[in-house]
Design a protein around this nucleic acid. Structure first.
Lengths: 234, 234
DNA sequence: ACAGGCGAAACTTTATACAATCTGAGCCCG
DNA sequence: CGGGCTCAGATTGTATAAAGTTTCGCCTGT
């Protein structure tokens, strides 16, 4: 593949790290990487044509985001959130996302509303197409988009972490194959934002998150299953 | 058992990274490192007796926490939060810390209350001693302690970032030399937690944070000052 | 005297080589 | 026949060295 372009268009040296990081996160968001999968440094390095140094920094960043576990002298693995983790993640989302929606309303402009509606269209198309991977990815991106719209960079950073973890949680603990994230909910939220109705938008976001969480199966049974999986799946 | 000394006295390989990271954060929390200070890799490596590889990973983690800025081909610098950053940080704290207090009350045990009261004693002693650095550090640690008590690892991680950034913000934008963090406020919060009075504890935490923020000076004047400082202080 | 450009030094960045550690299989012994 | 041990293979962690880039100082030309 395109080797090291010495000078000409060197596509931002340090962007190679970002490319690796975003590639792996995208794979996780699309449910292509399963929890527990080993992420060998040489393996990833070969895929992206980067040396282990760069792969390592990317993996460390991902570990800091909580979606990769680095075990000493063992390597990096896709994180395997516990039911307790799942509860914490969704509680944090229930706390943060209504606040984000408030800011999004303050920043709502026709351009942003348009952007959101275009996204809704994409989501519907993916769902009609039956493209489960794109559907899952776009569901997460909707929430990220609202956070970007809010202009609150700290909330955005926190939420990016939470979304990535949510993707793993949903993959592990979802009950049935119900559509990833009710598009209707998203549409309702966009509409409320467009009306600048903070009360309704917050409430819709909250119930949306509650519904997602309600579709999960996080009982004590899982705890037993968990232990088994840890011992066996490690 | 786990104490296998592989060689001379190498104190656990990956702990050296943590030591660097915690050393730098402690220096920031104690206001010993000023915003904009350059953190040279060789310099830190010599101080901690580690090679640049380890220093680099530590700095990258700190950059991810938002208290260090890494500029391409320039190096790492202590972050210099803008007034906008400051507002975001404190808004996030006002959102998260009341939620943390709620969990702390659920987890309150005599042992934890004792731990908190011992911390209050330390704070008072440092303040009586006139030890400003210890006082600032302990003020931040109080909030971290409550977060640890809550048992909510995600909130704890978020708050650690916010506290470190707050330390830089207070250093930059505090008006007078009023005591770092009203110890009386902390005492009141501990008391409310001990009474398991969630309503009061949340309210006290909120007003505590609002008071800290009120002591800051984040007006547009700062924006002008900001530009100057960036051009001159870089 | 001042502005602009050239050159060298220092730094970060990246890659490669080495050392330490862990996993897994084969072998010996009970 | 099963269990424990040792050794080989592989993988990660660390350090060192080369490469590229930026910056600062100095010099020259106007």
């Amino acid at each position: 593949m395109a080797k090291t372009r010495p000078k000409s268009d060197a596509p931002d040296a340090s962007d190679r790290v970002s490319r690796i990081r975003e590639g792996v996160t995208a794979a996780i968001l699309e449910h292509r990487l399963l929890p527990g999968t080993k992420l060998g440094e040489d393996e990833i390095g070969d895929i992206y044509g980067a040396s282990r140094t760069l792969v390592r920094t990317a993996l460390q960043q991902l570990a800091h985001e909580g979606i990769v576990n680095i075990e000493k002298n063992r390597g990096a693995f896709v994180a395997r959130p516990t039911p307790a983790d799942a509860r914490e993640v969704f509680e944090a989302r229930r706390l943060i996302e209504p606040a984000i929606v408030d800011h999004a309303i303050d920043a709502a402009s026709p351009a942003w509303i348009n952007r959101l509606q275009r996204h809704l269209t994409e989501e519907r198309e993916a769902e009609l197409r039956g493209d489960a991977r794109a559907s899952v990815r776009l569901s997460g991106e909707f929430h990220r988009l609202v956070a970007e719209m809010s202009g609150h960079s700290i909330y955005l950073g926190f939420l990016k972490e939470l979304i990535a973890r949510s993707s793993l949680i949903i993959l592990l603990y979802r009950r049935h194959d119900t559509p990833a994230c009710g598009t209707d909910h998203h549409a309702g939220i966009v509409e409320a934002i467009g009306r600048r109705d903070g009360e309704a938008a917050r409430a819709l976001m909250l119930s949306h998150l509650q519904e997602i969480e309600a579709e999960l199966f996080l009982k004590e049974l899982d705890a037993a299953d968990r232990r088994l999986a840890d011992v066996l799946g490690a």
